[in-house]
Amino acid sequence: MRDLQNLSGGGLRSARLLAPLAFACLVTAYPFAVSDYLIDIGFFFGIYALLGLSLNIVLGEVGLFDLGHAGFYAIGAYVTAVLNTRYQVPVLVLMPVSCLAAALFAYLVCSPIIHLKGDYLCIVTIGMGEIVRLALINNPFDLTGGPNGVFGIDFPRVGNLLVVDSSIEYYFLVWITVGVSIAGLVSLQHSRIGRAWNCIREDAVAAQATGINVRAYKLLAFVLGAALAGAAGNIYASKLMCVSPESFTFWESCLMFCIVLIGGMGSIPGVIVGAAFISLFPEIFRPFAMYRMLVFGSIMIVMMMVRPGGFWPRKRGAVTLRPLMEDTADGAV
C-alpha cells in the first residue's frame, strides 16, 4: 500500500493491481463455467489457501517453524462440530467462536514454549498437533466421537433465508473468507506489526535491540494464525458435515508447511500458488493414479532446486527504481 501511495506512476499502480484483479475475476467466474465436481475442487483449493495464509503468518512472516498447525485447524473444526450438533448453535455464529477457541488454545499452549529456538520449537509444535489429534481419537468426556468423529453438522445459514447448501455457495463462502483475510493480511504487512514480524524473522536479536517485543509479536502471530486456521476448520466441518481425527494428521501440517515454502515465505500470492499446487496437482494427475504421489514428491524436490526462494517470493522495495539490483538479489538467494 505504502509503495503504491508513494510512487506517483499510475502505470506501476495498475501493474501491481493487475495480477490480483485478474485472479479475483477468474475465481469469481470459475464456478459458473464448470461442474459441481470441479467447483468442489475449487472449494478445497480455497481451504488450503486459507490454511496457507494462516501458517504464512507464523512461518512466512515471523519465521517460526510450526509443524503442528493442523492442531489449530482441528480445534476450529471440532468446536464447530460439537457445539452445532449438541447445542444447535448456528454454524455461521460458530465461525468467530471457532476462531476465538483456536486463538485461545494457541495462546495458552504457545505461551510457555515461545522462547524455544528453531527446531526445538518445531518439535514442540509437532507434539502439540499430535496431542490434539490423539486426544480427539480418545474421545475425552465423550465429546469428540473418537476415531469416527462427529456427524451431522448443519449448513451455514441465516434462518431459512440464506442457506449455504450447494457447492457453489460453499465455494463463495470459502473464497470470500480468503479475500477478506488477504485484505487484512496485506494491511498488516504494511504496518509496524508486519514490519516487526519480519524483523524477528530476519534477526531476532537485532529485533530485540531495535525495541521490538519479540515474545509478544511471536505470540500474536501464533494467535492470529490459529484464528484463521480455526475459520478454515469451521468451513471445512460444515462442508463435509462431519469431522474425524484423520483429517488433522501431521501430514496435513506438512502440506501447509509446503504451501508456504513452495510459494515463497511471507508472500501472499506465493501462498495462493502453493495452495493451488498442493490441492490441484493430485486432482489434475488423478489419471496417473498410483504414480501421481511419486511425481508429486519429485516435483517438490525439483521445485526447491529451481526456485529455492519459492515460486513467487515477496518483492520488497521499489522494483521500478532499481530493477537490476532487485533481479540480482533474487538470483542470489
Binding site: R192, R195, A196, N198, C199, E202, D203, V205, A206, A207, A209, T210, I212, R316, G317
Partner: peptide, 14 residues
C-alpha cells in the same frame, strides 16, 4: 546485524 532481506528504509523504520 541488519534485517538483510528488508529495504534500508524498512530497516530504519523498524
Amino acid at each position: 546485524r541488519l534485517f538483510p532481506d528488508m529495504t534500508c528504509l524498512e530497516n530504519v523504520m523498524a
